[in-house]
Design a protein around this nucleic acid. Structure first.
Length: 297
DNA sequence: ATGGTGGTTGTACCA
């Protein structure tokens, strides 16, 4: 899963997403992983921690600045850690916490959007959805409708986009360890899969799937029982990019071993390594129109 | 038929 050069730094930017399932309970694991893998950007979900109680100092010591959104009451919450630059200035701008203008129940702390280098970066934590047919499930679908609108709006201003997060959808049967058993259920239902597919129809590329075509890869294993040990998992954590960014990928990998640590969060980190330079013919194309409909088939 | 775990908050809830 992890590329051969696992301990060396990639030539270009490294971005990762990780559902940390409480940053206060898990900061030792997260900080150790950051220290070892040194992503430029780590999008975190389910931080379950109000901003004032966030273990910020641990991140600062490693040279990361933080953007934090919510987590009050021990539910939800997202954050983005970004490697500090040498000039002492913040390397992020244009921060949006949540979907601007959203009203309850779509105003929960589940998203951060910010500009970093030439990319618009989004850390997303979709509602779990509980069970098909419940209010929670309808809220999940409404959240995805709003996400689609928000990303379409954002992409008119920022052609280079990277969406990282726990979207709480297994996009296809291959993304579930036993698709038949969990058919038409929460995380697999047709309306959820349509919501995910709509993002690809808008021109975003599911870069994990496009790099593991036809191969089952999982990012979440239920903590109960021996689901991890027996690899009964799901692919719920995703990285989507615009088509041009998708053409400049060095590697995509899931740090499956990290999930096996004692006391680990139940999700594995998902990592995107980009090439240091744009592909030939695409240098200096800031402002280019994103290609549409070029996602994996 | 529906187990099994963990975090946070508070004696249930969310995942």
């Amino acid at each position: 899963m992890r590329p051969e050069d696992e301990l060396s730094s990639p030539p270009g930017p490294r971005l990762a997403t990780w559902n940390v399932e409480s940053i206060r309970a898990r900061h030792d694991q997260v900080i150790a992983w950051l220290d070892e893998n040194r992503p430029d950007v780590l999008a975190m979900q389910e931080t379950r921690c109000p901003a004032r109680l966030f273990p910020t100092a641990h991140f600062n010591r490693l040279g990361y600045e933080l953007v934090i959104h919510g987590g009050d009451g021990g539910h939800g919450g997202v954050a983005v850690a970004v490697q500090e630059t040498d000039d002492g200035l913040s390397s992020v701008r244009g921060i949006d916490l949540g979907f601007p203008g959203a009203v309850a129940p779509l105003d929960q702390p589940r998203s951060i959007s910010l500009t970093w280098r030439s990319w618009r970066i989004h850390s997303m934590y979709a509602p779990n959805g509980a069970k098909v047919g419940t209010d929670a499930h309808r809220v999940k679908l409404a959240w995805f409708a709003l996400l689609r609108q928000w990303l379409a709006l954002e992409r008119t201003d920022h052609p280079h986009s990277i969406i990282l997060g726990d979207l709480n959808i297994a996009p296809a049967d291959i993304d579930v360890w036993d698709a038949r058993r969990y058919r038409m259920r929460n995380l697999t239902s047709p309306l959820e899969r349509e919501a995910f597919a709509a993002l690809l129809e808008d021109g975003l590329v599911d870069v994990v799937r496009s790099h593991y075509e036809g191969v089952p890869v999982f990012t979440w294993w239920n903590r109960r029982s021996d689901f991890y040990e027996t690899n009964r998992g799901w692919r719920l954590d995703h990285i989507l990019t615009d088509a041009e960014t998708a053409r400049s990928i060095e590697a995509v990998w899931i740090d499956r071993q990290e999930r096996g640590r004692d006391g680990s969060t139940d999700h594995a980190p998902v990592v995107l390594d980009l090439l240091s330079t744009k592909p030939a013919g695409h240098a200096g194309t800031a402002g280019a129109t994103p290609l549409v409909g070029s996602g994996p088939t």
